[in-house]
């Protein structure tokens, strides 16, 4: 059967569009250090909460301090150029000016510890695919409908004031 080449191309494009993750991931940010979540989480099996310690006890997960990075990187991979950059920040006693990747609307209160410690929600529910990222991007758009789907499913509060005050 002879196939129309144009139709084949269109089908291929359609397939590509469908196969690509159906997300609206923003363009990756150029961070001061090319930190890879993939290397740390997927390759070396570090727990998210090893670095983002506050996620279990505070509203904000937080970004680890340079001291936290240097706990390991004083001895691990010290010759790599990106680790040298890290060591430079350590030497100058300066924080790393990371750019924020995951943004939540400022009229929304999202206590991380409530989800992580008491709701037992896995980190990847809201941050899908970040464990496979060489450069972190936000893949999940935090719309209210998306939040509510999970809240309804778990039978937890869907009161307006739970998240908006």
């Amino acid at each position: 059967m002879k196939r129309d080449p144009l139709a084949a191309i269109a089908a291929a494009l359609l397939a590509a569009a469908l196969l690509l993750p159906a997300d609206s991931a923003a363009a990756p940010l150029e961070q001061p250090i090319r930190y890879s979540h993939k290397v740390h989480v997927t390759d070396y099996k570090l727990d998210c909460r090893f670095c983002h310690v506050n996620a279990t006890k505070s509203a904000y997960a937080g970004i680890p301090s340079v001291a936290k990075c240097m706990m390991c990187h004083r001895v691990i991979a010290t010759d790599r150029p990106e680790i040298r950059k890290l060591a430079q920040y350590w030497k100058e006693k300066k924080p790393i000016p990371w750019f924020r990747v995951t943004e939540l609307q400022e009229y929304t209160y999202f206590p991380h510890f409530r989800m992580v410690t008491y709701g037992k929600v896995p980190c990847l529910t809201c941050h899908p695919g970040i464990d496979k990222d060489d450069i972190a991007v936000q893949r999940q758009e935090f719309s209210m409908g998306w939040c509510l789907t999970c809240h309804r499913g778990r039978g937890v509060s869907i009161d307006c004031w739970t998240c908006h005050i």
Binding site: Y107, D159, C160, W161, H164
Partner: peptide, 16 residues
């Protein structure tokens, strides 16, 4: 503005 059933207070949602 609605009645918060958990806390029995009169709630006000600004973004609505």
């Amino acid at each position: 503005t609605y009645h918060d059933e958990d806390d029995h207070v009169n709630a006000m949602v600004y973004n609505r």
